[in-house]
Amino acid sequence: MSEDAPDAGGRPDSFKTAVSVLIALTALTGALLSWKAARINSTAGTGDADAIQAALHRAYTEMTVSAEAVHQRSAFQKYRLHLLLSRLAKNQAQSDPGAPGSLFDDWQREVMKAVVRRDALDQDYLEREGEEERFVEDRYREAFRAEAVGRKATDPGPFIRRAEAARSRVRAVVSLNMLLAAALFFFTLSLKTAKPGRRVWAAAGLAIFSAALGLGLWRLLG
């Protein structure tokens, strides 16, 4: 009588039936894990796309902010230059009583130029340091950036982290398929081995299958 044959009462070998069911369960679990891995992988893809979109928003924001900040900086530098020229004229007028009358005109002209330049500046970002003023470009950029950004994400970092975490989960889930395949091997071995050794192989397969199932549930639910 072959090992595969039914017993004397015509009933099939219950061990083989049980192992066959386990093989089917293992295969089904593998399929489910693969489906789950594919779904997680698509999350990773979305994370990559979101990261690129955030980087594009940042590029747009930074270029706009730079254009405005540089415009303000240049205006401030011109303002400072005329202010300096007006002060030099004033000093000359004060230190030289015999200075020509046109010096007063020069002084006034430079003062007016400085005033016009200063009016073009965003006054909120001028800071006084003693006699001097300075343009606080960092603060200006920060404020303008906040305005330009609005509700759009401009930091790709969180999306990159999300994508990388998703890929790490995919790897973990797919690695469980290796355990399931090992379990399948042992189940097959138990079917092809004579008593009593077959129970040992089946037990090994069951242990690996249980471990894979437990790890899978922990990974997916945890």
Binding site: G30, R171, V174, M178, A181
Partner: peptide, 8 residues
């Protein structure tokens, strides 16, 4: 089993 390793 080998297939599962290659897939990984």
């Amino acid at each position: 089993f080998m297939g599962s390793v290659i897939v990984f």
